[in-house]
Amino acid sequence: MFHPFSYVAPRTKSELLGILRDDGDRSRLLAGGTDVLAELRFAREAPKLVIDIKKVRDFQGIRLVEGEGLSIGPRATCTDVLESPVVRQRYPLLAIAAGKLGSPQLRNRATPIGNLCTASPCADMAAAFLALGAWVELESAQGVRRVPVDSFFVGVKQTVVEPDEVVTRVVVPADMEGAAGDMEKLKRIRGHDLALASVALVKHGGKLRVAIGSCAPTPVVLPELPIETPVEEVVAEAHKVIKPIDDVRASAEYRTFMVGVFIERLMARIEPQQ
């Protein structure tokens, strides 16, 4: 039960950007709501405005864009991603990641873009997007800009998104199409849980890309490695970029250990596409 706020559902992107220009610093953007509304339960104060982006006609769904790659819009839910034939055939790691998020009900609402914008260190989609070298497009009344996902997160639940901006797309580059990738997620139970540690690993174009979640203030990605890099070296590189903590969920030690285990498993399991 929330402190009262006002709700608005702009129908066009320009309407949305206008609202953000005027009230962005007193508003929350609402897509799936599974993070925003869960947070608002405890908020001491309500935002003035909750802006529902799901009725914005100009926002695209999931499509292939010539010259770019796979473009996912703010209305696409995790279920949409998981079930999309385009994603499953051409960018299967994203379908795997979307399938690991939450429960069926949560997946029907949660969006990959929302997941990125909440920027939890545990974000389930983040490691996959990082491993695939994705970038996001942000728009405001001032204009458009693009930010690679590996520059998108700046701290725990902090991103580069300005109060007057909205993420309109996340794009996985065309040269990652068909990339062989998979993900491991450490939980406390087999039912839905957030990640205590997660690893997404991609083998593509002679390269190895490894991204890790829940082991640093933000999801992190290793520098690209040659595909022949021995497992031990990959694990050593991973240990350089992660800074896991002890908390009620797991110890830093176990997280570190499991990151190594996951890298080993994924390296053994993923066959690079010929």
């Binding site: 139970i189 087999r190 957030l194 009620v248 969920r249």
Partner: peptide, 16 residues
Amino acid sequence: LLNPNFTDNKIPTSLD
């Protein structure tokens, strides 16, 4: 109390 919620006080689901 650090875990007064389902986020951090897990109970068995059908998958468990």
